[in-house]
Amino acid sequence: MPQVTLIEAVTQALAHEMARDPSVVVLGEDVGVNGGVFRATVGLSERFGPERVLDTPLDETMIAGLAVGLATQGMKPVAEAQFEGFVFPMFDHIYCHAARFRNRTRGRMTCPLVLRAPWGGGIRAPEHHSDAPEAMFAHVPGLRVVIPSSPARAYGLLLAAIRDPDPVIFFEPKRIYRQYKEEVPDDGEALPLDVCFVLRDGTDATLVTWGASVKECLEAADQLAAEGVSVEVIDVATLRPLDIDTILESVAKTRRCVIVHEAPKTGGVGAEIAARLAERAMYDLVAPVERVCGWDTHMPLFRLEMKYLPSTARIVEGVRRVLAHG
């Protein structure tokens, strides 16, 4: 059984789907001979040829627009933005076109593209290489926004994203690209989209998170367990459409919820989750919903980035605050 890192799981999923489905093509900057700046597409050009692994001119707008063109004509493009900080020139095509083609043509045309991008902070990268813009995409009707948090989920969710008949934004937490290996059989088994994954059962509080922060949430749960506090940890995984039912079910049990994400707090996806808890779980809760997030500042350059990202200590404090109630 192969032991792979998260980034190797991405490569494994891409290769599996390209072998299975001739309509899958990969395009982006440096994805060909170089195998991508993070090596997510390494070996694909040699195996599938330069017509299916397209090194594009350096133009993010172009990559997104081409992906829309390919997807609306029966192909399954998997476009790569080199970093999440470079997705903004692509946003026009994602927001105005990819998300809307099915609706505006009344189903005549569909746009099953995948836009992959390394996402988030924590790798001491230069400016514009460490952001968490998922809320901007999660706000858009017609899109799916997926962020895996382990090698197995990267493999299974990317397969599902490529097979999905609608556009999927697939953000990969680069901080944990090579954090650890786990067994990921290359069996072509997709994981379900649109559902949360309960990573740890608990009874006293629920930690709701996604991406690299899953690591700190699990650490926080370990620390609190040593004190006799039982914390449930949920990886949201698909931020849109949001599986609120799994979160509601957990909160009905634990009666306390802390939402953790590295994006800025204001207007983040955590705000949507908190609003839905207010709508539907008001009387289950014994404490106000806490949010432990990136500050409402710009992502700082890397000397301060670990002060910006939610730390295990901040998450533990957040849980202690909700535990003070009830």
């Binding site: 093509v25 172009m62 627009g65 081409l66 063109g69 390919l70 004509q73 105005c96």
Partner: peptide
């Protein structure tokens, strides 16, 4: 059925056509 709908965001359709051409070539 493969023709594009009217496209209001200016010039974006040029890239969709290029992507379509890329699909045909592939």
């Amino acid at each position: 059925k493969h023709d594009y709908p009217w496209c209001v965001p200016i010039a974006t359709q040029c890239l969709h056509a290029a992507g379509a051409a890329l699909a045909f070539r592939t």
